[in-house]
Amino acid sequence: MKNYMEISFLAKSENEAFARVVVASFASQLDPTIDEIADIKTAVSEAVTNSIIHGYDEDESKLVYLKCEIEDNTIKIVIEDNGNGIENIEMAKQPLYTSKPELERSGMGFTVMETFMDEMIVSSILGEGTKIVMKKTIKSNKREE
C-alpha cells in the first residue's frame, strides 16, 4: 500500500490534539492496534509541542508542517518548523535535558519519540528551523488468521 498526505496548521496548542488525530487516523489505514495508535499519537504530540513551544516560542501566527507517507506496513512522519532551530542536537536529545525548565518541561520529548517509534532522526539549523523524521512499522496486520 502507498499513500501520502501533507498538512500545515497554526502553531496553536489546540492544534496539537488535532495533529495527533490527523496522523493517527491516516495511520489507521495500516490497521494497527489501539496500542500502536497510542504510540504514534504520543510521538506526534511531542514533536508538535516542541515546534510550538521551542521552535516558535508559542507565536501562534506561525505554521507547523507535517507530512505522512505510507509504504507497505510502514508510516513515515515528518514534522517541521521554520523556527529557532537547535544548537546542539546531541545535547537536546539527552533524557531530561530541557532548555525551558521554567515551563516545567520534562526534557523527555525526544526520548519518548525514540522509544515509541522505530526510528527518529532530528535535523536542525539554528535560526532556520527543525525537522523530525520518524518511522514506525505496523506489525499487527501481518498476523495470521
Binding site: 490534539a17 499519537k41 504520543t42 519518548v112 515509541f116
Partner: peptide, 10 residues
C-alpha cells in the same frame, strides 16, 4: 485521552 502528559508515558 487523558490530558496529554509529557511526563507520564515513560
Amino acid at each position: 485521552q487523558d490530558p496529554i502528559s509529557l511526563f507520564d508515558p515513560i
